[in-house]
């Protein structure tokens, strides 16, 4: 068994984004294959994410200009009562046409935008749960890393599009790689996730179901994202079945699967 300190040292470079493409690839393979390494990764990442938020929060709290920010905050909350009287102009559907909307309508439009991003929860419980648990997978961003072989760099490019939120470009990139049997796992998996990112749930669901049946790589990830598709479409029994399987995987999704299963019982 490897000493924990060595594992943590190697993971430090990974979680602080300080490795070349090849080194990242090796670590990711290891994370997928070795449950102990996977657990160590989870803890390392949890610590880093927490510290990052905490350091940022401390920075905000000690900002000498906080008082200025608080004055602005007081001002905006005082504005609330006068919402209906304020008018703003925002660009309409046609370039030359300017629509005048009441502020309340503008804010309603902003709400819709925020709901789209999952920043605001939807009204339905299942949507709310989906929003709470869905997040793009954390693949590594390979755009600024070292040299890689050509085949992998094409895959990396597709993953990078996905990571950057260019889901359509990611789909297009993987479509070009679809003919290569060696890349089927990556093609199917990231195409499905990109559809999910675009809110095209039935398409994502179909591809993930194929991936599950064909037993491609990323099985735990597929179980997780497919269960979220089922949650979204209201197929709770199917979601339950997959989450129960995930509960048995001693990995990244175990805890979330357990919690989500408990919450899903409400729909039964």
């Amino acid at each position: 068994m490897r000493p924990t300190i060595d594992i943590n040292k190697r993971l430090a470079d990974y979680i602080y984004d300080d490795l070349t493409t090849e080194e990242m690839f090796v670590i990711e393979r290891e994370i997928q294959k070795d449950p102990d390494f996977f657990d160590a990764y989870q803890l390392n990442k949890e610590v880093k994410d927490y510290l990052k938020a905490k350091v940022q929060l401390e920075e905000m709290e000690s900002d000498p200009l906080l008082e200025e920010a608080e004055k602005l905050a007081d001002m905006v909350f005082d504005l609330e009562s006068t919402d209906e009287k304020v008018e703003v102009t925002i660009p309409g559907g046609k370039r030359n046409k300017i629509r005048k909307l009441t502020y309340a309508v503008a804010i309603a439009a902003s709400f819709a935008l925020l709901i789209t991003f999952g920043i605001l929860p939807g009204q339905l419980d299942q949507d709310r749960l989906f929003d709470q648990y869905y997040g793009p997978i954390e693949a590594s961003n390979n755009t600024q890393r070292g040299e890689a072989n050509e085949l992998y760099s094409d895959v990396a490019q597709g993953i990078n599009y996905y990571m950057d939120g260019d889901y359509q470009q990611s789909i297009d990139q993987f479509r070009m790689l679809a003919a290569d049997p060696a890349l089927q796992s990556e093609v199917q998996f990231f195409t499905a996730l990109s559809h999910l990112g675009l809110g095209q749930y039935p398409e994502a669901q179909g591809i993930l179901e194929s991936g599950l049946n064909e037993n491609i790589r990323y099985q735990a990830d597929i179980l997780w994202y497919l269960s979220l598709c089922y949650l979204k479409s209201g197929e709770f029994d199917k979601a339950n079945a997959l989450l129960t399987k995930l509960e048995l995987y001693d990995g990244l999704y175990k805890k979330d699967a357990q919690t989500l299963l408990r919450k899903l019982r409400r729909f039964k």
Binding site: L57, D63, A69
Partner: peptide, 11 residues
């Protein structure tokens, strides 16, 4: 007049 992060925090 301050950092955006500080403003988000204050709000």
């Amino acid at each position: 007049k301050c950092k955006l992060g500080t403003l988000v925090y204050a709000l």
